[in-house]
Design a protein around this nucleic acid. Structure first.
Ligand SMILES: [Mn+2]
Ligand SMILES: [Mn+2]
Ligand SMILES: [Zn+2]
Ligand SMILES: [Zn+2]
Lengths: 142, 142
DNA sequence: GTTCCAGTTGCAACAATGATGCATTTGCAA
DNA sequence: TTGCAAATGCATCATTGTTGCAACTGGAAC
């Protein structure tokens, strides 16, 4: 659990000013079980009056600084999650699963993917982002 | 190698009319080593004067009919490839690799991906689309 | 070969997400 | 407390995807 002062320190140690909107964005992302998109964050903070371009730059700037991880699940939407902090999911990089029916995202933190065959060298070094898409259990049953 | 008459038959057997623009789209896709996007196809056929919404519907309709396969590589762009015809790549479904630096797409037709751990049931049944993203060999060297 | 109509096209909009230039405001170090 | 680089608010644009509707056409039926 990260306190308000923790979040402030997180920003300062990454050379970013601890502005009100950045703190609000971090509070939203902290504790989310799966990554949130820019539209998600904009809607969540709609009542606060932040401009969507401010929130957009908050997300991209914090991702560029390494505070957030930007993930692309293959549905034309960037999503962001805390990269290292103690949050509801591990700070380590991990694959994600996107349900093609309901859009739900799950973090596959304990999944092991092995890739064999003729692939770019970077893949064999583990420098690869893996995305899985299909039907989630709920949508399979339905 | 598919002849013009082959392409015409391909459309007719799928209950689609063999229109000039559909034939032009199939000619473009046939022989491509990797899937093409709607903007790709629009640009390739720019001199022919086809409207982009016509080409858009050509692609989506032929994908819905099963002539094309629509793939999503995680960069907010739909791409299309021939689904079954004898083309430069196998008609079978296969994972794709997207270079995050140069945008190049490669078809991983001989790659074996094993997934273990706690995943949705559909994944263990092989009902899953797998996308790999990272640096291609050319961009790794550069 | 001609006719006819459902299927298809061209055009004009619109939606969603992402991105940026610039004047004004603010965080924070001095 | 002040000064200024960093950040914001607002306007505006880009890209990709999507749809309504009137006009046109492929091809089956004759
Ligand atoms: Mn995650
Ligand atoms: Mn392919
Ligand atoms: Zn689902
Ligand atoms: Zn590359």
């Amino acid at each position: 659990m990260l306190s308000d002062s923790d979040l402030r320190d997180l920003l300062r140690t990454h050379d970013l000013r601890a502005t009100q909107s950045r703190l609000a964005v971090l509070r939203i992302l902290h504790g989310q079980p799966s990554p949130s998109s820019h539209p998600d964050v904009t809607e969540a903070l709609a009542s606060n009056g932040w401009d969507r371009s401010t929130l957009y730059r908050n997300l991209t700037d914090m991702a560029a600084a390494g505070i957030l991880r930007r993930v692309d699940l293959g549905d034309r939407v960037w999503r962001y999650e805390l990269a290292n902090a103690s949050t509801q999911h591990s700070g380590n990089d991990h694959p994600h699963f996107l349900c093609t029916a309901c859009g739900d995202v799950s973090c596959l933190e304990k999944v092991d993917v092995t890739i064999g065959g003729s692939v770019p060298a970077a893949v064999n070094l583990g420098h690869v982002a893996i995305q899985l898409r299909g039907l989630c259990d709920a949508c399979t049953e339905a």
